[in-house]
Amino acid sequence: MDKAMSNKGVIMLYIFPALFLLLALIYIPIVQTGYFGLMKWNGMGSKEFIGLTNYSRLVQDSLFWSSAYHSFLLALFSVLSLVGYLMISVVLAGKIKGADILRKIYLIPMLLASVAIAQLWMKIYHPTNGILNSMLMSIGIEEPPMWLADPNLALFAIFIPIIWQYAGFYILIYYAALKNIPESLIEAARIDGATAWDIAWKIKIPLIMNVIKVTIVLAVVGSLKYFDLIYIMTNGGPNGASEVMASYMYGHAFRGFDFGYASAIGFFLLVICLVITWIIRKATAVKEEIQY
């Protein structure tokens, strides 16, 4: 093995397939998208080069910025929800009774397809027959909110299933990370008289800081490019009240036949994600690495 790995030709040979696929399926399309963004193009037929018109239109497009604002709100809520997941994981990893069952319960939403989750929550939110409004009506509220039809509520009504959907995923990550902390460390702390709170706050969380950083990036980037539930549950409506960047892009490409502008949005979305990721990495960089 060592011999093979020192041979540059062999290394190239091994890397090539993965590299080729990555280039062909990810990087080249990204460059192409940026290029299409410079075109007036309806998705078929000829393209007309219009320079940066699409991008300047994007900067001035208030609908785009409102959808971007919604995306950032989602990112904010997702990150806040991480705190909750972390707490749940700390409790679960702390050898409580039934932790195993609870962990599985939290994981179940992750096993459902987005479409199924969307259908489920659309039934829950149904203005007249949904269980949510039926419950509200049975406790005496005569005009319960019309969750997905009310422009002030629609966005937040969708946030709930989105956050619920990913709970299992993050809990699983935190749980695994917490389980990796050597028992001896915890025991040593306990002998020194540390409370459970101290152990969690001063030992466990600093030790899994790297994992937390990764989940923040995942949550933020995942939120910024989020699409599925919104597309199915409201399609960005009513009138853009729950539009996010990705659904706005989709609308322009596949309903508005404006692939040029949609490409510009897509490329811009990528740039935003890259910048945000970089900022998070910078902001959360720790000077000294804490180790076991």
Binding site: A149, N239, G240, R255
Partner: peptide, 21 residues
């Protein structure tokens, strides 16, 4: 309508019914 205008029209219809316009 052309696809782009149709999008505008449909969104406006929804706002009209929702009394946002």
């Amino acid at each position: 309508m052309s696809a782009t205008v149709a999008e505008t029209h449909l969104n406006l219809i929804q706002s009209l019914f929702g009394k946002e316009v």
